[in-house]
Each structure stands twice: as C-alpha cells, then as structure tokens.
Design a protein around this nucleic acid. Structure first.
Length: 444
RNA sequence: GUCCCGUUCGUCUAGCUCGGUCCAGGACUCAGGGUUUUCAUCCCUGCAACAGGGGUUCAAAUCCCCUACGGGACGCCA
C-alpha cells in the first residue's frame, strides 16, 4: 500500500481537548507521510490518566477527521504493529525492560527502576535544527514504584516496535531527546530521524499557546464555522514555508510541496486575522454547489429557509453574495432580506443616508420610473437610474443609497442592480412604498 | 539556577547553505485611492524590519564571537 518505508506517528494523549499545536504536529506528520508515500500511524498515549475517557478519544479522532487527516494504522484502522493504545502494550514494556536489566542498564532504587545513562554527549540529528548536542547527566526513572512504565521509556519502546523512522514533534520535546537517544542505543535500536517543530505562541502575550487561550482548540474552529480546509492551509503555513510566496494550496499541492527542509526554526505566533483571510479566500472560491450546501444549514438555523424554499432562488441569491463573504457566520446576516420581508433597518446606515439629501424624494422619483419598466434587467435598471440622476442633476449614488436602504435595510450588500433584479420588481416597489410610508408615519 | 533552541516589517515569512544581484521581496493587519459614488469582496498605492556590540572581508541580513531578549526542558505528567 505504501511506496516508501517512511513511518511517522502522531501520538496524542487524550485529555479532553485537541490543541491546535497538536493538530499542526499531526498535519506535518500526515503531510510527510503522504509526501513520501509512507505510513501515518496514530498511537494513543492513554497510560495512567483518569482523563482518558472514551469521549476524550472521540474528540481527538473527530478533530483529525474534521481536518481531513486520515491514519493508515491506529484506532479503528488496524495495522500490523498494534495494539495502538499504549495501555494495551504492557507486555512489550516488560520485555524491553528485561533487555536493559540484562545488559546492566537498569537498576532498582526506592522501589522504582532507573535507567543508567552513559554520560556521553548525545548527538541528535535533527532535520530542522541540524545537529543538537546534549548530555544527559542523571539516571532517570523508567518504571515507577507502582510498576507502571514512564513516558520516556514508553515512547522509545513504542517507536522501536512500531518501526518509526521519523519522529516529528514539538520543540518542547527537544531537551527530552537525549534521554530517548540514550534509550534507543541501550536497546540496540537504530535512532530515528528527529524533526522538532517550532512551538506556536499565543496570539498576544508571552509563552506558548495553552489550552486556556482563545483559539487554542481545534474544536473552536469547527464551532466558529471555519472551513476545515482553510484551517489546514493556515496551519501548514505556521512553521513551514514553500519558499515562493504561495499561500493557498490545494491538498495535492500541499502534499507535493511539503518537506522537512522547509520547516522553520523559530516559534510562530498564531494570527487570527490571517486565518480569517484564508478562510474567506476558501469560502469565496468554493464551487457554487458546495457553497450552497455549506451555507444552507446556517440559513435554516436562522429560520430564513426551509424545505419549501425555491432551490433556484436560493442558488441565485448565494451566487450573488458568495464573492463578498469572509465567513459562513456572516451569511445569514448578509442575505436575510432576500428571504424575509421583515428585515430591520440598520440605524447607522439610515442615519448616514438621511444625513445628506432627501432619500424619500429620490425613492418616489425612482418608484415612478421602475414601475414603467418592461423588463427588470441590470442594464435597464442602470440606465434608468442614470437617466434619473442626469435629469435631476443628482448623483446616481443618491438613488442607489436610498434604494438599497429601503429594499435591504442596510448600506452594504451585493452589486446594486443585481440586487434589484434578484428581488424582482414587485418586491422592490413594495418595499420602497412601505419604507416611504414608514418615514412619513415617523414624521407625524 | 542548569541545559537546549531561537532572534528579518505589529504578525506570518522569503533571502542566510554557495558574502556582492537586498537602500531587503511576499502575505495579513492598518491608511489612502479605485472598482457602475453600497460594501465585508476585488484591484492599486503607501506605512513598516536585518536585536545590539565587536570582529573577518574590498564587501555581511548572510561567516565568527559576545551581550541582550524571547522560547523550551529540567517529574516515580505525557
């Protein structure tokens, strides 16, 4: 199935959250596996933690799937190197502990088992930072006095027994790596290639992003209705760079271009604004049918459409508005008046437009002309407004602003003449009339 | 405190391997303008950086050293 012997893994511990930094690590591992034709393994580090609930695991798997990251081996996928839950691999840890006892590298003290370090400088071949040298000075615990193995021992045994060739993980593990290389060597196993990823810093303030920071969790982006492909695209740019200023990639391009040498060394700050920008770019470039499918639930939730809504009309409206949107969250607010005659008049817009000129007078003039038209097409509408403005020596904007306010309740929206066309003459005239009488009532 | 990693516009980054082509390029943000005088899109223009100090060199963002600052690790957590 795989065409290379590269084997990478993402090894999260289910804590009930899926951290965005973890997602980025998973993405880089996944991209590297796909890029090389290797294998992406998902291993669950679920040892001794009461937080390890089925829900916590599910959250992780859902998050990965939401981002489109599928694993070749792991929970719900099988594979020859299982089990993929650390909690089920106990026998292996005992077996490897015995090897260390046999070669004199493990000893008991205070009821715990210690690993005896070599004291030699450990040279870590890191694909991101080249050579890193660090000496592990002190023996460390590999089995607790309660008989359970400790993380550093467990990762190494798992990586050995799962045939992991490249360890791509966060930089917070860099200083631990000397422990790991000691262990690999003592167990007579080849040391994998490491690639330590720069950390993601919080949006403002010092330090790395932590669970409590806004925007730190993958599930937030799902809840905030970001497109997963946009989040994925943004994430791949955090700490990796294609070197030619490309910023938006298709998945295939991303896979083709991603590689270890393009990974940066310095920590990156998470930028919400840029994510929003990329999300907007994805949203606007969605094929219309996809956009309709993605948008529908939001309009339904807002009570704007139901199963009786005309599908062609829905398409026409969304086609008109898609090019202006930045996020799906904005959709219902942007198109409400297309589906509901009871739209609010935005006070700020109203004040702005009434401040200069006499919108009511303009609307009366316009209504007379619109009523005469045989066709309600964009060019004709445009000519009508232009003719009116020339005849009365006014700006076309005087008519446009007034009419947009009357017909949609706001001063922002899609192209004006298209807006009128889609709404149709009947509704446009009805809305203008209602608006005018509303203004006159207010005066009395 | 000890050890490890890092330091180019406010932010993400290109350039650093092989010093001159860089009075440092792109993107986000922001400001101004344009887009049938809507706008949240789109286009254009603009603001804005080589942390500091020493070297090496004809020449340094690029090589070396020091300092400062930022980050991380130092658990019988993972």
């Amino acid at each position: 199935m795989s065409s290379s012997n590269v084997r990478v893994r993402f090894a999260p511990s289910p804590t009930g959250f899926f951290h965005i930094g973890g997602a980025r690590t998973a993405l880089f591992n996944w991209l590297y596996a796909r890029h090389t034709g290797g294998t992406f393994v998902l291993r669950i580090e679920d040892t001794d933690r009461e937080r390890n609930t089925p829900e916590a695991l599910q959250l992780l798997l859902d998050g990965l799937r939401w981002l489109g990251l599928d694993w070749d081996e792991g929970p719900e996928a099988d594979g020859e190197y299982g089990p993929y839950f650390q909690s089920e691999r106990g026998g292996l840890y005992d077996e490897y502990l015995q090897k260390l006892r046999d070669n004199g590298r493990a000893y008991d003290k205070d009821g715990a088992v210690y690993f005896k370090v070599s004291g030699e400088p450990q040279v870590i071949e890191d694909a991101v930072r080249s050579k890193v040298v660090r000496t592990e000075e002190k023996d460390f615990v590999i089995f607790r006095s309660n008989g359970t193995p400790v993380y550093h021992f467990v990762v190494v045994v798992d990586d050995i027994t799962m045939g992991i060739t490249h360890v791509i993980r966060g930089e917070d593990h860099l200083s631990n790596t000397s422990k790991h290389t000691e262990l690999f060597s003592a167990l007579g196993a080849p040391v994998p290639v490491f690639a330590h990823l720069p950390l993601i810093l919080k949006t403002n303030g010092p330090g790395k992003m932590s669970k409590r920071d806004r925007g730190a969790l993958v599930e937030e982006y799902e809840q905030r209705n970001f497109l997963p492909e946009a989040v994925r695209n943004y994430l791949c740019l955090l700490g990796w760079n294609p070197k030619d200023n490309t910023e938006i990639f298709s998945l295939d391009e991303m896979i083709e271009r991603f590689d270890l040498p393009g990974i940066n060394k310095d920590a990156a700050r998470f930028d919400d604004k840029k994510l929003a920008h990329i999300n907007g770019a994805y949203l606007r470039s969605l094929p219309l049918d996809d956009f309709v499918e993605k948008g529908k639930p939001f309009l339904e939730k807002a009570g704007l459409i139901d199963e009786n809504t005309d599908r062609d009309y829905l398409r026409t409206v969304l086609d008109l508005c898609q090019e202006k949107l930045r996020s799906l969250d904005d959709l219902a607010g942007y198109v409400g008046y297309f589906f509901n005659d009871e739209y609010p008049i935005v006070e700020k817009a109203r004040r702005k437009i009434f401040k200069k000129g006499d919108p009511v007078a303009r609307l009366k003039e316009l209504a007379v002309e619109l009523a005469k038209l045989e066709e309600f097409e964009e060019e004709i509408l445009e000519k009508t407004v232009q003719g009116l403005s020339e005849a009365n020596e006014l700006y076309t904007g005087d008519y446009i602003h007034a009419a947009r306010l009357a017909v949609s309740g706001t001063n922002a929206g899609p192209s004006f003449y298209a807006l009128l066309r889609v709404l149709g003459r009947e509704r446009v005239l009805g809305r203008i009339e209602r608006f005018i009488s509303g203004c006159q009532d207010a005066e009395n």
